[in-house]
Design a protein around this nucleic acid. Structure first.
Lengths: 215, 215
DNA sequence: TGTACATCAGTGAACGCGCGTTCACTGATGTAC
DNA sequence: TGTACATCAGTGAACGCGCGTTCACTGATGTAC
């Protein structure tokens, strides 16, 4: 029982890996069941022993990729929290960008370029990004406590930061290295603006002179 | 000469319209040349008289859709600037969301779900979004001047706002109306955090060190 | 104005291709006793 | 332990289908004189 089940899992993973490899070329949405099976060294019909259809495999991929990216960024944050020499913002974003750079096809998958973009698919992607926001909320609150810099609307700020990082980070995929560095700086600066806004609001700070009305 | 050229333009537009109509169902990336031609009431071969291939038509669509969305939002902003009763932020975002809602297939096209997501395609979309940022920078600067509330990093702040609006707005597509309203509020709140951050930075405000007074 | 010729948007037949899916099968692994 | 049977991952042939693209064509519109 064990041997057979293990073998099946191996084959399943081979299909997922094959799909990732192929999606590097022309994007996930250009993949076909037959091409994936072939890349994995299987007959087309074997695909059905592991997935119901292409969308099903796509959803499994989103899970897998999202999880590994979150793990990476979490590690990076933990590293700065202990060493305390670098900025958490900077290291998180740089780790994130490195992933986007070296695994651009995975990254693109997380951005929604997949499986004909069915509602299910988009929902799965939304969930992944929410996980990121969850992580960040926790971090921001811990940081606010530690540094005695109160923050407000933490979840909204975190969502805005993650959205900016993900979607501007996406632009890096087609950029030459030097421009990519500039993009990273831009993203970091924007995340800091959001941070400052949330802190200013928490402190009750309001913009100057003839003021009374918001906005 | 005029009559023939006019007719050709009409047919070309019919192909673009047909593509838009069809992309409402299964997304742009699922379209085929034959299906579009059929929807437009033409033989498949006629397609080639107007576009080189599907990607070519996709790029033309991005241009068209981006332009019309920008026109819409610009109008909305102008309306508030004169009437001055409502918040510019609110009306801009609400107009934007209304577009995303009623023309969700066009909107999705602008988010990159198209034409196999070739580099050219992504570049075209990046350009469209940059146009939005350009518009917003101008607005923010005019507003800062008018209300005497200095702002800094205007371009970065604008880019962050547009990114948040576009990409969170995208989530509205699959949402029921009541949740969609909550999403709009969230987006507005996040845009305001960014705004406040840029104003706080301009004013030289910094978060309090291990604090002095209770609040 | 009328005539002869050029242009060119739209066509229909035909092509080869890769696609997703079905089906009945094989043979190794697992299970019951 | 050995035997008989069940399970099930992987297969190869076959299907019908819609695809993009080519080609030589038609006939209306435009142009030169």
């Amino acid at each position: 029982m064990a041997a057979q089940a293990r073998q099946k899992e191996t084959t399943r993973q081979a299909l997922l890996d094959a799909a990732l490899r192929l999606s590097a070329d022309r994007g996930f949405s250009a993949l076909s069941l037959r091409a994936i099976a072939k890349e994995a060294g299987l007959a087309p019909t074997s695909f059905y022993r592991h997935f119901e259809n292409l969308d099903d495999l796509g959803l499994a991929l989103v899970d897998e990729v999202g999880l590994s990216l979150r793990r990476l960024v979490r590690q990076a944050r933990r590293r700065t929290q202990s060493s305390e020499t670098a900025s958490v913002t900077r290291l998180s974003i740089e780790t994130f960008m490195e992933f986007a750079e070296t695994k651009s096809h995975l990254f693109r998958l997380l951005l929604g370029e997949g499986a004909g973009s069915t509602p299910d698919f988009r929902k799965a992607i939304g969930r992944e990004i929410q996980h990121f926001t969850d992580d960040l909320v926790e971090d921001l609150e811990r940081e606010a406590e530690a540094k005695q810099r109160p923050i407000i609307h933490t979840r909204l700020a975190a969502e805005a930061m993650v959205t900016v990082a993900f979607n501007l980070g996406a632009g890096a995929i087609d950029l030459p290295p030097d421009e990519r560095l500039k993009l990273v700086e831009r993203i970091i600066a924007e995340v800091r603006i959001i941070m400052r806004g949330a802190e200013a609001m928490a402190a009750g700070w309001e913009p100057g002179p003839p003021s009374q009305e918001p906005d």
